[in-house]
Design a protein around this nucleic acid. Sequence first.
DNA 1: CGTGTTTTTGCGTTTTATTGCAATTATATA
DNA 2: TATATAATTGCAATAAAACGCAAAAACACG
Lengths: 248, 248
Amino acid sequence: MLKKERHDFIMRQINLHNRVLTSDLVQLLNVSEDTIRRDLQELVDDGLLFKVHGGALSKSYHSSFDDSTVYARDSKIIIAKKAVNLIKDGMVVLTGGGTTILEFIKQLPQNIEATFFTISPLVAVELAKYNNIEVILIGGLFSKNSQVTYGGQVITQLSELKADLCLMGTSAIHPEEGLTDTYWEINQLKKAMLAAAKKTAVLCISEKLDIALRLRVCHIESISYLITELDDNHESLTGYLAKEINIL
Amino acid sequence: MLKKERHDFIMRQINLHNRVLTSDLVQLLNVSEDTIRRDLQELVDDGLLFKVHGGALSKSYHSSFDDSTVYARDSKIIIAKKAVNLIKDGMVVLTGGGTTILEFIKQLPQNIEATFFTISPLVAVELAKYNNIEVILIGGLFSKNSQVTYGGQVITQLSELKADLCLMGTSAIHPEEGLTDTYWEINQLKKAMLAAAKKTAVLCISEKLDIALRLRVCHIESISYLITELDDNHESLTGYLAKEINIL
DNA sequence: CGTGTTTTTGCGTTTTATTGCAATTATATA
DNA sequence: TATATAATTGCAATAAAACGCAAAAACACG
């Protein structure tokens, strides 16, 4: 591969993710670290990016502290990083939508090889940045509130799927009441998602623990992993530890 | 082999692969490195490619990441505003993806009442901002390049749909060759979209006029409206005016 | 034809560019 | 602070490019 092509490749990565890791580039481009470092330095000299320890960031990076409440973002990153450990090469994964899931996608290693089904357009777009991930967007009615597809057609398609793992966010979880929701449509959707995967991981920031809403999706035992930003021996989690569920 | 033949050979390689290696050319053309270098230099002087250490790259390849979309934005807004006039309350509309279509969505009147089918997640998200638009996202394999869903599942779903109007962007349109595309999958997709709507409007900035690519989607007569940023009596459009097609 | 001129090409040499390695220094993270 | 990870630096091997030169081929034209 020509140097210019490497540079273009790096810039494409930068434009997509706003960041690159030196180690990822070494793998993806199959050259030594030194070469990558020199490449990055040249791109810095051209004013196209800036280098940091471990990789490089896009010039527009600083302005990309765009979305959502900053304070919750740290927690979501912690959760996302834990969730990434569940993903192995070759897996078929089903995901819902929401900012936590989106953060999880962003934390995936660059060269991971997997198949992802999702009901969230934004997740699909984010997944498309990974070269070795096959992305299937499950289509149907599009919910203005949840920003995911839902309805009969989605549930039909989910019923034909068997994924290795389902990852979903939640608005409420409770040791006795299980996973609950407010809207019937979303409730149905989550039930279908649970049924479509061998195992399910629920990503949930601690402020949503011990809350029960009107409609039950499932009992707590139906969930394989509960992932929060807390240590797994934190007192808030004792109620969940008692059940057959892995706390991460 | 004559010099001119070598040059043509090199340009064919460039057009095919966007790149050539000096060493490959030496082997393929059976001449010395010096000759190849001189050839490449002459092609550079003619502005047909540009040289890099180890070979040469095509001109178009060069611009692959520096996002030309910025300057064209004004044109796209003009196109989008024209396209909005085609939409009436109660319509069932099918749209593709791309920046021009996205701009069109943004230009829709806030209280419009319609049903939109789309293969583009980004379009779906944008449409969700309108309270009275029902959004159906057509699901399937997600294309990393085009950022739309495609493949057999999408085409099946499209075959069950009959929309009033289909709106699509295009990468090339030509008065004789019609609508053309480079990738087979996208070609199939566009054919299915055309078939799924009573009328079709093509949104197309003028720089894409009079270009023909490898695969034909349809003849120019199959299109109901051609929307560009130019006045409808602009000289570039005379070739299209001759056909049975509305220029907006 | 023949002769002088121009173009094209390949060879040897020098110069420059690219890349990986090893040793050292700096930086992060538990 | 200790340990792992990343960056820097100088160096050497390799690959590519540039340059001058000369042989060969093509061309121009009386």
